[in-house]
Design a protein around this nucleic acid. Structure first.
Length: 464
RNA sequence: GGCGACAUCGCCAAGUGGUAAGGCAAAGGUCUGCAAAAUCUUUAUCCCCGGUUCGAAUCCGGGUGUCGCCUCCA
């Protein structure tokens, strides 16, 4: 398969370090606030990456860190007037709750920065000893000019950085691009003892330490948002290679940005949406569809209209599965005389193997669905295609709760009551008593139950 | 100032040299007591100009426009 590698700026054949094993690390949240709809993109995308690697037979080890110590948490703690540790706890829980609501599966490990302080100190010490870092008044900085490979991920040159740097107030630094490894604690801030006095580690160090600890010296994939390329990932590479002279990761994957109606999302523009808020109006699969219908590296524009369209598109998949009564043959073993399963799987693999072209897969899903919907198709074929729809959909993270979504989730007795009403209404229809029949349909609609008269009989569903 | 990305039907979006996937919306047909649903059908020559080629949305050059990074940020 091919993956676009930011490090080389091209699509490369993906070869894992160990056959059939994939080790990946994706930068997780800084838990100082609810995460926003833009944060959902890497969460959903790398969820799909993991599913796909497993689908093609790999054992995946997936790490997503939690940054639970950082300036932003400290600021938040002052705002909310509760200790930093409680801020971290509160928003870590919110993070997992929201992920769950978005039907994003947990990673295998969720290391917290504060649990790796000692290892970080060890790394910083090593860097200082090797002269890649220097201490000034209890702060420790990484010296970018000592590391010859600096800029190789982002394609930046040190001279250019200097030229374009906005006012850099910190006169302690030898070079404006030098970044903080250890920060001296101010009064009242959380602190840990270190050879340079009490303080806390900088953000860029934690990912190096935790990824190596959990995944080994060099691992396969390091991912995150495109904005992390510089400086975060650049700085990770610098620390890793300066300390061990060994690549941190072989493939660097970055997802594109999310804009709101063409503009960057920001609090000052008042176009800031938390995932939590969006989920109140639209369901997880609509959001997932929205993201996956565009290639992950391109920027994506968010607005309500698009989510509504996505929502409709997902609904059509469900209608399609309902129309064939999917649950009734879900586990059936089917003959496939024309080997259509293989043909479609080949297509699916071809699209996914091409740097995760989920947009193309979604088109395939619709083509498969059109076979399922077509009443001229023989039943066995409709069944095979239904299975394929669910199989591929699952890899993209759709249809995770089919049993519930496809059955009308009312208690048995309520369901029977509705059937009873439908039967009475059908008698009225037989007598051409349209007035009362329509009134029943209208009244049921008002309490959220939709009746549809089809040639095969009357169907009902719950309107959400 | 430096670096980079993108520009395809009303909207969203694939396609990276061989003659424009798919979704949403819209229109028309079928079905139907009506409604809804379902289903069928229809709709683009790819921002502009020039070049390479038998052949370009796809490659090259020059414009124009939009956006991002260079500061915490997915």
């Amino acid at each position: 398969m091919k993956i676009y590698n930011t490090l080389t700026n091209k699509k490369e054949e993906f070869i894992p370090i160990e056959t059939n094993k994939v080790r990946m690390y994706v930068c997780g949240p800084t838990v100082y606030n609810y995460f926003h709809i833009g944060n959902a993109r890497p969460l959903i995308f790398f969820d799909v990456v993991k599913n796909f690697f497993e689908y093609i037979g790999n054992k995946v080890t997936f790490v997503r860190n939690i940054t639970d110590i950082d300036d932003k948490l400290i600021n938040r703690s002052i705002e909310e007037k509760i200790p930093v540790s409680q801020i971290a706890e509160k928003y870590t829980k919110a993070f997992f709750d929201d992920c769950n609501a978005l039907e994003i599966n947990p990673a295998d490990h969720h290391p917290k920065a504060t649990e790796y302080i000692n290892d970080m100190i060890k790394l910083i010490k090593e860097l200082v000893e090797k002269k890649f870092a220097y201490e000034v008044n209890g702060d420790v900085y990484f010296s970018v000019s000592k590391f010859t490979g600096y800029g190789k991920l982002s394609g930046k040159k040190l001279e250019d950085l200097q030229a374009g740097a906005r006012v850099e107030a910190n006169k302690q630094k030898k070079h404006p691009a030098d970044f903080t490894l250890w920060k001296r604690a101010k009064q009242g801030e959380p602190k840990w003892a270190s050879p340079w006095g009490k303080g806390r580690p900088g953000w860029h160090t934690e990912c190096v330490v935790m990824s190596r600890k959990l995944l080994g010296g060099t691992f396969d994939i390091h991912g995150g948002g495109i904005d992390l390329i510089f400086p975060h990932h650049e700085n990770e590479i610098a620390q890793a290679e300066a300390s061990k002279n060994q690549k941190l990761a072989n493939y660097w994957m970055h997802n594109g940005y999310l804009n709101i109606e063409g503009e960057k999302m920001s609090k000052s523009l008042n176009n800031f949406f938390t995932a939590r808020d969006i989920l109140k109006k639209y369901d997880a699969e609509a959001i997932r569809f929205f993201f996956l219908s565009k290639h992950y590296r391109n920027p994506i524009d968010f607005n309500e209209n698009i989510i509504k369209e996505s929502s409709q598109a997902v609904k059509n998949f469900y209608n399609c599965l309902k129309s064939v009564d999917y649950l009734s043959f879900k586990d059936e073993k089917l003959n496939d005389p024309d080997n259509e399963r293989k043909a479609n799987r080949d297509l699916f693999l071809q699209f996914m193997n091409n740097d995760f072209n989920t947009a193309q897969v979604i088109a395939l899903l619709f083509e498969i669905a059109s076979v399922v919907k077509n009443n001229d198709e023989p039943l066995y074929r409709k069944k095979i295609y239904s299975h394929l729809l669910v199989e591929f959909g699952n890899v993209l993270g759709f249809f995770q709760d089919l049993d519930n979504k496809l059955s009308n989730d009312l208690s048995d007795i309520s369901g029977e009551l509705i059937e009873l009403i439908i039967n009475i209404r059908n008698l009225l229809k037989k007598e051409k008593n349209w007035e009362i029949a329509d009134a029943i349909r209208k009244d049921l609609k008002e309490i959220g139950i939709i009746l549809k008269d089809t040639p095969k009989g009357t169907n009902w569903s719950i309107n959400n």
